[in-house]
Write a protein that binds this DNA or RNA. Structure first.
Lengths: 113, 113
DNA sequence: TAATTATATTCAAATATTAGCATATTTTTA
DNA sequence: TAAAAATATGCTAATATTTGAATATAATTA
């Protein structure tokens, strides 16, 4: 299992709107940079930077096809995380049972009982 | 479903080692700030800041128990995301079929066929 | 009511991230 | 071999995040 540090790093890398859109697109299949340019409204160098970041973190990789770099997903956690993000949650988590005991114990006084 | 922007924001908020540890702890049950102080090695003001950030993003909330603030999870996506992060993945995703066609089509030349 | 406990807020400094611009690299085509 | 196409890299300025330090607040107890 990933360490907490690695988990946080992973989330930070994915947690950018452009990178999220790139990853979503790659879950659909292989894309070259020009394909990505078509639907991301940002500059090509900027796209390349984001791709490099994702690649250096081991989330994606590419192969060459002529002069095209064809990027694809390699880390299997990515589609699973994206699936969770797409889920619709109707309700918040149930509120905890009234005043459960923390390590510090309970205090008298004006509690919300 | 959350917008891409909200999804990225959510991941960025969770994507910090201290906040991740706080959230993991809260999946186990309600904790007051002093409880959290015991196992996080950082200052109390810093913990409060992270708690405030998590709360302002709607991930957690608290109730008062005397002078204790008892924090708990409210966003149901959190335990699901943490579960995925804890999964063990044996293998990378299968490599894409050789040279799938991108929108730009294929190029002749020295491809890896 | 003064002291104590539990926790939050504010501000500033250090650091990290992001985007833009100019330019470089690589492969292919003419 | 020169030009074009596809993409990457390096640098910089703008912005955001993070932490620490000092202080504030709010509830409880003495």
């Amino acid at each position: 299992m990933r360490s907490i540090g690695k988990q946080a790093e992973l989330l930070k890398v994915i947690g950018h709107p452009v990178r999220l859109r790139i990853l979503r697109e790659l879950t659909k299949g292989v894309k070259c940079v020009s394909d990505l340019e078509e639907f991301l409204e940002i500059s090509q160098p900027n796209i390349s930077q984001h791709l490099a970041l994702l690649r250096h973190h081991g989330l994606i990789d590419y192969y060459m096809d002529g002069r095209l770099r064809c990027y694809f997903l390699v880390d299997p956690i990515v589609p699973d995380l994206l699936d969770v993000l797409n889920r619709d949650y109707e309700n918040p988590l149930p509120a905890p049972a009234c005043c459960p005991v923390t390590k510090r114990g309970k205090y008298p006084g004006n509690r919300r009982h």
